[in-house]
Each structure stands twice: as C-alpha cells, then as structure tokens.
Design a protein around this nucleic acid. Structure first.
Lengths: 153, 153
DNA sequence: CTACGACTTAAAGTCGGGTTCAAGTCAAGA
DNA sequence: TCTTGACTTGAACCCGACTTTAAGTCGTAG
C-alpha cells in the first residue's frame, strides 16, 4: 500500500495559526497543559484543530486561570464530565477572586484620583494621605514622613 | 561631654511597627526605594517616623505603583517639587492602566459567568465558547477542540 | 555533498518583589 | 569569659510563564 500523505501540521504552522511562538507550545506540552503531541521522525504533528485548542487555553488564561488551573480544567476530571461541569467547579472561586481584585482596583483608583485633586505642598499637610494611612494601621505618629522630599525640613 | 543616648530605632523595631519583615526594609534600601540608613556601629538606625514613611510606600504600592515608579515618585523630582506635583506627574497614566485592567476584569467576569450559565455537554456545542473565540481571531475551524475531554469524539 | 530552514532537546536566563541562607559582628547579661 | 539575640553582608533561591541559547537532527534543493 502506498504511504498516505501526512496532512497534519508541524509546530510552526500551528504556532502561526494560533499567533504564538513555537516555544510556548513546547512549553505547554512540557508543563502538561497540552497532551504530548505525536511525533513523525521526532517532529511534532498536530491536527488542524490545534489552533482552536490553543485558543481555548488562551481564553481560559484571559479568564484569569493559571496554567495549573487550566490543566485541572482540561484533564482534572473524569472523562465523562462535560465542559459545563468542569467550568462550574472552578469558575465560582475565580469569580470571587475577580470581585476582590476589582474592589482593590476601585480603591486604587479612588486613591489616585484623590491624590490628583490634592494641592498640598508637604506630605504632612496632605489630608488624603492621612486618611488612607489611618485606614491602614492605628494612626502612627505623623511628623514629617517625606519632608526631605518636599524641600527643607 | 557625656554621650547622648541614641533614641533612634533599630531595624527590627521599625519592621515591627510597619508590620513587615526586616528583610524587606534591607531590600528596599538596596533597591534605592529607601535612602541608605545611617549606621551606628554598622547597624541601621531610623527616626521614629520611618514606619510612616514605609506606610506611604505601601500606600503607593496599593495604588499600583511598582518599586521603580515609587523611586521616581520619591526621588525623581527636583527637591522643591511638592508631593502634589509628583503625584500628578505619575497618576494619570496609572489611572489609565487601571481602567484598562478593570475592563479586562469585567470581560473575564462576563466570560466566567456566561460559562456558568452554559449547559453544553461538548465544547463544540458551546455557544459561549464560540462567541469568545470568534472575538479573538477570524473564526478558525471549529471541529472538536476538546473532544477528548468531553468524552467520545 | 553541502547548505538551508524548520525542527529537536535540555538547560539557563528573564522579570519583579522579595525571602532565605551562611558566615560574621556587636553589645549586654550571667 | 561565654552566650545569646539582634544585627550585618552578599549570594542564592523562590514564584509563574515564558524566552533564549546551544548543540544536534531532518528532509529537501541545488
């Protein structure tokens, strides 16, 4: 029988399709984020849907999952667990993390904006600063924290 | 003349007040985030407002500034530049960064939540996934990306 | 036969923000 | 005097997610 032409893609092709470096694909494989690719003469060969598979991984990364979590998402369940269940098992706590992070960012934003409104010449005088510092601990002694900055003592 | 007692604090004291390890203070000094402390017999001595100074640094970190940016904030301006001007010079772009990050998080959140609502048994069928994937590139071929996950091909 | 480009591997380097370690120094107390 | 605890230093290590490098292999074109 004559040899069937291998239409499957080399790593460079997949990488180009997925818009990532080949090194990333090899890295994912080594980390177990991708299953070991079949080799033809030692070279990896991929099915044409590999770029999509990589896009799914990318999507999960966008959703804030670490590679370790993505491994769990992909391979951490019994084979007959549908995607929806896998997702649910992990998305809840991740959502909580996101909410927490959003609150942090909102606080940051407020702090930055208040700082913009502030016209103080020396840190000692800065009401904004004092407010936020006193949030953080039981109001330590506020003499002249950055006074060497704002000019003379 | 009798020697004046040095009331200034050793590093451990300051660290305790600030609620951080001594190693962090040494690290900050080495990185130039803190000015070199005066030494008495080779040991660092700090004024009593040092914990507040550290709290200011912490506050800036909370606001999303890197140590490098904090250095700029603290020492990157001519001595007579008041804190308000220093802050303004840096806060604007940082605010933009935050907004960008918030949008990202919002997108993540949406993705996670949509995933929660989804009941699909195989990724091929997942409308949520397809929507987000098609956002990301010009709709690559969607055969059975994670089919080995969801059970049979 | 040789050169080339795409591929292979293991190992090391990168980034930021620290922590940990080993070896030595200091002052005070028993 | 000896010990103890707090300190000093430089260097090495840690995390995650990769990238880079070095040295070797493969098939094909000339």
């Amino acid at each position: 029988m004559r040899p069937v032409i291998d239409t499957r893609l080399p790593i460079g092709e997949v990488a180009a399709q997925a818009g990532i470096p080949t090194s990333t694909i090899r890295y994912y494989e080594k980390q177990g984020v991708l299953p070991p690719a079949e080799r033809v003469n030692g070279r990896r060969r991929y099915d044409s849907d590999m770029a999509t598979y990589l896009a799914v991984i990318d999507l999960a990364k966008q959703a804030g999952f670490s590679l370790e979590e993505i491994k769990t998402l992909l391979y951490g369940f019994s084979d007959d667990t549908p995607p929806s269940k896998r997702w649910k098992a992990l998305a809840g706590s991740k959502l909580a993390e996101i909410d927490q992070r959003m609150e942090q960012l909102a606080a940051m934003k407020l702090l930055l904006q208040e700082g913009l409104d502030c016209e103080c010449l020396r840190l000692d005088d800065c009401a904004v600063l004092l407010t936020h510092l006193s949030d953080r601990r039981a109001r330590p002694n506020l003499h002249h924290p950055m006074s060497h900055i704002s000019g003379r003592t």
